[in-house]
């Protein structure tokens, strides 16, 4: 079961602000999900091959060729940024590590 300190850590890592009134509501909701998963955990999966995707397709890839996006696309992408300097995106200062 999820505890309050775990919840706060997940919220911090996900950069989601949750106010005090909401915390208990979300913990209750999340714990309902954990209960549901716990029921699934009871199924015997000894002879089941681990699956990550619901498709039998494999090796979907492309050859190594260069195709630049058009200047108009690049312009749209760039204009989406709140701030820019020369050709760089300008952002708040971050710790250099």
């Amino acid at each position: 079961m999820i505890k309050k300190c775990e919840f706060n850590n997940i919220a911090f890592l996900s950069r989601i602000y949750v106010n005090e009134q909401e915390v208990n509501k979300y913990i209750t909701d999340l714990n309902k999900m954990v209960t549901a998963v716990n029921i699934l955990q009871e199924v015997n999966t000894d002879n089941v091959i681990p699956t990550t995707h619901m498709t039998s397709m494999r090796n979907i890839w492309r050859q190594d060729t260069v195709k630049s996006s058009t200047n108009s696309v690049k312009k749209i992408l760039f204009n989406n940024a709140p701030e820019a300097e020369n050709c760089f995106y300008k952002i708040r200062k971050v710790l250099n590590i």
């Binding site: 260069v66 630049s68 996006s69 760039f78």
Partner: peptide, 26 residues
């Protein structure tokens, strides 16, 4: 490689900043 791993943008070094970008790598 000539192109990036998940899109077809060039991997050339020393280009104008943000010139080798597209909808995928941004």
């Amino acid at each position: 490689t000539k192109s990036k791993i998940f899109c077809e943008c060039s991997t050339d070094f020393g280009c104008q900043p943000n010139s080798n970008t597209c909808v995928i790598c941004t």
